[in-house]
Write a protein that binds this DNA or RNA. Structure first.
Length: 285
DNA sequence: GACCAGGGCGGCC
DNA sequence: GGCCGCCATGGT
């Protein structure tokens, strides 16, 4: 993608394949805030401030569309997946299923973030039978109360710090009945070698993730997609279920069966398709 | 005051 | 194995 990297910022010139609202509001991340100028994004101990310059079409194409202000530009080049060619991905999806054009056009600026695995695991355990506003609120409570202060913001707590928190803390954070699941999983995570896990193929890794408390098939798929960057998964939630019945006019009721059908159809493109479909269904009107 | 939210779990058959 | 009721709680 067309971008330039400096020592304290990244400039983005491609508004067709990068739209910060599409990226952040498509439900893949819960650790961000909307501001007057744009967005603040938190990941591990890093912070990025994204400004939309809203360049008009008749203005010079040498002017940046977005400016990502950060002390960690290299980290966010990887985080925002800037080296992946999304135009190519969209064309491959359309070749497979032309019906998806409206959904891809609607969320054309989506990019699948490369998030920290620990944050994704915690976030998506909280996500079960929950809504995004409340998930965000719970996550920011955890960061605010348990993360190291780094000046004007806090880092996401390390596994060590998380393991010091009890069920009562997560209930206060608003996690509800998921609080005890979080405590159990955090304890299990301390025994896991993440580097070894990353070597596993998707189906084996999925089975390992499901062993964690609060992680079933759908949450495992989200962890695989957003944390392990595996694109050969298709998380089926209540919104995808609606699309499956309405847009695709299929009568299958079992989510596990829907998942199998969708992954079989879209293969290595599944994760991308899921994001375009989800964002469209949840956002439009 | 229902109904819904990026579902998972345990009990029952 | 599949089905079903329950689970906390804020948003709408």
């Amino acid at each position: 993608m067309n971008y330039k990297i400096f020592n304290n910022r990244i400039e983005i010139f491609d508004s067709e394949n990068f739209n910060i609202e599409h990226i952040l509001e498509c439900g893949q991340i819960f650790t961000y805030d909307k501001t007057e100028k744009g967005y603040l994004v938190f990941s591990k101990n890093h912070l990025a401030e994204i400004e939309n310059k809203e360049v008009k079409k008749f203005q010079s194409p040498t002017r940046a569309q977005y400016i990502i202000k950060t002390k960690s530009p290299k980290y966010f080049v990887n985080f925002f997946d800037l080296e992946t060619d999304y135009k190519k991905i969209k064309n491959e999806i359309l070749a497979l299923e032309p019906k998806l054009k409206e959904k891809i056009d609607f969320g054309h600026g989506i990019r699948i973030l490369k998030q920290d695995i620990l944050e994704v695991i915690i976030g998506f355990i909280i996500s079960a039978n929950n809504n995004i506003k409340r998930i965000k609120k719970t996550m920011s409570y955890i960061i605010e109360k348990a993360g190291d202060n780094l000046g004007n913001y806090n880092a996401f707590p390390s596994l060590e710090k998380l393991s010091l928190l009890n069920e009562d803390f997560f209930i206060k954070a608003g996690a509800g009945y998921r609080a005890k699941l979080l405590v159990k999983t955090i304890l299990k995570l301390k025994e896991i070698n993440f580097l070894e896990m990353e070597k596993l193929e998707t189906s084996s890794l999925r089975k390992e993730l499901i062993k964690l408390d609060g992680v079933g098939g759908k949450v495992a798929d989200c962890i695989l997609l957003f944390g392990f960057s595996r694109k050969d998964v298709f998380p089926v939630d209540t919104w995808i279920e609606k699309i499956f019945h309405y847009d695709f006019d299929m009568k299958e009721k079992n989510r596990e069966n829907m998942r199998r059908i969708l992954v079989e159809k879209f293969g290595a493109l599944s994760g991308y398709v899921q994001q375009y479909a989800y964002y469209y269904k949840r956002t439009k009107k």
